[in-house]
Design a protein around this nucleic acid. Structure first.
Lengths: 168, 168
DNA sequence: ATTTATTTTCAATAAGTTTTGAAAATTCAA
DNA sequence: TTGAATTTTCAAAACTTATTGAAAATAAAT
């Protein structure tokens, strides 16, 4: 397989993969392209390589920047802006975990805490099942939350290394 | 807050939450409803409580069954089919992890392995960056894969308990 | 200050996904 | 069997989300 073919496949599968994770196809494709580009590239490069409009590139690069996965780079003597992606995959993963935790998990845990405080007869099996279910999810989510905090703070090799050794 | 209000909120937020995880809103809502229903319920119950069509209930319950999260229950003397959801949230989580691993992670790792084998001059920085990126993702994904296998096999309290103790 | 390059915005449109509902298929009972 | 209850299917419609592209805004150069 040649590089150009492999590149196309990587970008396309990464895009499809992203859609299973609540990330839109184009955003994931732009990210993929940046991940395999050794040097920073421009809006026009992205437009050309992925065959998408300027507006689309603009929106999605800004979204990637807000996720902390991509950076604008200023190249001396160049008027245009260039973009580059964090290449260390561990950093990419922790950054995504951090953002999703903040955007999704934390608000959900807050809500669940409120829902547990319903008025009503605990002997009613509907009330009981509701409280049990919500409580169970909240407890589980709380544990996941703590675990993710540890991961986010931990250094790559130390964490994965010791975790795998611990459970081997 | 009364039960009926709390129920409505739980179902609606669980639905919204699901959409961030590649699960459609209705499927997540049906799942939420089943999670807080102490006894098995019918298609008609679901239609009525969520205000959705029969076809929609049918499609989504079958999808939930294929994910191993919901079961058909036959109630003696009843002609209609009843549905019930696994209530143990740890089992729900491991089931979801297991399925997503099979459907998404495993095929992705297979593809990445193939993409690493491109022909080309390793001194070309484009080739080098491609191989490095794909290799890095594959390695990381492989570690995640192993970790998830451990989780799937582990017993709830033992795993979470020891993991949290380990990292406290 | 004016021109030119570049980026950003956003209304219109296209594409994709979910939902409906009625017809077909199936299942059970008499 | 036949008929009634129930479930399943799937084309069409509704809804949601993503994309375009041209106009407006911004930034840099002359």
């Amino acid at each position: 397989m040649k590089l150009s073919e492999a590149k196309a496949q990587f970008i396309s599968s990464w895009g499809a993969f992203g859609t299973h994770w609540g990330i839109n196809r184009t955003m994931a494709q732009i990210h993929a392209l940046l991940l395999i580009s050794p040097d920073p590239i421009t809006q026009d490069d992205i437009m050309e390589q992925l065959n998408i409009s300027r507006g689309n590139v603009n929106m999605n690069t800004r979204e990637l920047i807000s996720w902390g996965l991509v950076e604008r780079v200023l190249i001396p003597g160049e008027r245009r802006e260039f973009f580059t992606a964090e290449k260390d995959i561990w950093k990419v993963a922790t950054q995504i975990i951090k953002e999703r935790k903040k955007r999704e998990l934390d608000p959900m845990l807050k809500l669940l805490g409120q829902l547990e405080q319903i008025e009503g007869d605990k002997k009613d099996k509907n009330v009981k099942q509701f409280v049990d279910t919500v409580g169970g999810i909240r407890k589980f989510g709380g544990q996941a939350d703590k675990m993710l905090d540890v991961m986010i703070k931990a250094d790559e090799n130390w964490f994965v290394g010791s975790l795998l050794k611990f459970f081997k």
